[in-house]
Amino acid sequence: MPFKPSKLLLPTSMDDAAEVLSENAGHAVIIAGGTTIYGIKYSGLLDHVDTVIDLSKLGLDYLKEEDGIAIGAYTTFIDIARSSLIRSHREFMAIVDAIRAVPSRQLRNMATIGGSVASSLPYYDLPVALTALDARIRIYGRSGRKEVPILEFLEAPLKPKLMDHEFVYEIYIPFHEGSSSAHEKFTINDFDYGIMTASALLTFSRDGRIEGGSIAIGGGIPNLVTLDCVKGLRPEEMIDEVAELARKEVSPIEDYKASADYRRYLAGVVAARALRRAAWRYREQ
């Protein structure tokens, strides 16, 4: 049967939500902005679903500062990209880049950070930026709260690391003093998902050398990949090395848009561009 759920549940407390999730395990789906679910509704992947669970009554629409930034799962892309909490930190600019990489204003008005992360799709931009920034996914379930590093959470496409009764309620991003970040997306047209994408976070010492940082790569690969940046080098000394490493680490998919070889080549291109832009941003902004 095609996706045509007959039941809609709108729990009003976190415990309620965990309860209805476990009661409906196996035939329910959580809906946030709805853009992923509607996007894949003809794919057959949701044909077993007869219940939609909407958590919009839990008040999960916020950004707050707490030794880093905590963002409620139902906060829309547009509210995040416009937030001064985000924009006042160079190290968070990969998030703004990743949201701008979403081709349409309408989607940015609808899509949420929780939906983007919990879809666990390697070609979504925002999770790549969050991975470079070392975000942690905050999860609620019958046994209370827990926190999982994003890379561990994004287990497989459309299969995040969540138990039946669990849901994402918040995304936490630590501050990275003296750092800047950037996200790059490579597409063949403005409307498409990234063929390959990369986000870079660079931490600098006072003399402009790299203290640390990481690069996350996404797009047409089954799982996101991260690379560590080499300490003690200047960004320009690192570019070729990073591009080469990126090409070595990814195992891209192959489809009508790009061959695996081309994607592998692009992994190096986007990694180098993200690195260059993060370094430029550190100097110029």
Binding site: T35, G39, K41, I78, P103, N109, M110
Partner: peptide, 21 residues
């Protein structure tokens, strides 16, 4: 399905959204 052509755009509380999805 995917959302993207925009012919279905409406404004909700001041923001443009795709009514088809």
């Amino acid at each position: 399905a995917c959302g993207g052509c925009g012919a279905c755009t409406v404004i909700i509380d001041g923001r443009a959204v795709y009514s088809s999805i």
